[in-house]
C-alpha cells in the first residue's frame, strides 16, 4: 500500500512541471503568480502523500506551515502588484 502514494506523487510532479511551464511562458506578471499559486497547492498535497507513504507525520506538519506561508507570499505579491504599501 506504499506504492500507490508514491506513484500519485510522481503524477503530481508532472502537474508541477506543466504549471512551471506557465510560470516560464506567462506573458504578464499575474499569470506567473497564478502558476506559482498552483505549484504551491500541488507541493502541499505531494508532501502529505509522501508523509503517508513513509509513515512520518513530520512531513504533514511541514505541509501545514508551508500552506500558511505560501498564502502570506501570495497576498504580499498581490499587494505589491496593486501598487499599495506593503
Amino acid at each position: 500500500m506504499i506504492q500507490p502514494f508514491l506513484i500519485s506523487a510522481l503524477v503530481l510532479l508532472i502537474c508541477i512541471l506543466l504549471a512551471a511551464l506557465r510560470v516560464i511562458l506567462g506573458p504578464t506578471v499575474p499569470d506567473r503568480v497564478v502558476g506559482l499559486d498552483t505549484i504551491n497547492t500541488l507541493v502541499i498535497v505531494s508532501m502529505i502523500l509522501f508523509g503517508s507513504a513513509y509513515r512520518e507525520s513530520i512531513y504533514i506538519d511541514t505541509a501545514i506551515v508551508y500552506a500558511l506561508l505560501s498564502f502570506v507570499t501570495t497576498i504580499i505579491i498581490a499587494k505589491y502588484l496593486e501598487g499599495g504599501k506593503i
Partner: peptide
Amino acid sequence: TNPTGAHAIARAAHRSGI
C-alpha cells in the same frame, strides 16, 4: 487560503490594468 489568494490575485490583476 486557496480562494482568498485567488481573490487577491484577481483584484491585483484588474487594478494593474489587465
